[in-house]
């Protein structure tokens, strides 16, 4: 399968590329919902060579979803860990969200 970047329709699940985060081959449908209901924040970076992923996502995501995916402020890993520690402590107290 030789995808053209002019294509707007995403490739079928048979077409897989290597995910730099997971370290193995995955299909576009996984990336589209990697972050719960939202796409992976690297989805455009990884798929832009294969079809017009940016155009596709702009047409399919709401403005809020688009912004939550690509404009949510990142944070240092250490702060992510601290957030998760707090969530875990809350979870023990039955406050898991």
């Amino acid at each position: 399968m030789n995808m053209k970047p002019e294509k707007i329709i995403p490739p079928e699940d048979e077409f897989v590329i290597r995910c730099p985060r997971l370290g193995h081959q995955i299909s576009f449908s996984y990336c589209l919902h990697e972050s719960g209901k939202l796409p992976c924040f690297k989805i455009l970076d990884c798929w832009h060579n294969y079809f017009q992923v940016e155009k596709y996502l702009k047409e399919t995501l709401t403005t809020e979803e688009w912004e939550n995916t690509f404009f949510a402020p990142g944070q240092p890993k250490i702060l992510t860990l601290i957030d998760l520690i707090q969530q875990a402590k809350n979870s023990k107290k039955g406050k898991y969200k």
Binding site: F41, K42, I43, L44, D45, F70, F71, G74, Q75, P76
Partner: peptide, 24 residues
């Protein structure tokens, strides 16, 4: 981290953030 003043008509900066440039 991406700079948030780049303007939103541009493909979001986060997506260009390959290994050396994202918060991971």
């Amino acid at each position: 981290l991406p700079m948030h003043t780049l303007g939103r008509n541009f493909v979001p900066e986060a997506i260009h953030a390959g290994g050396l440039r994202y918060h991971g």
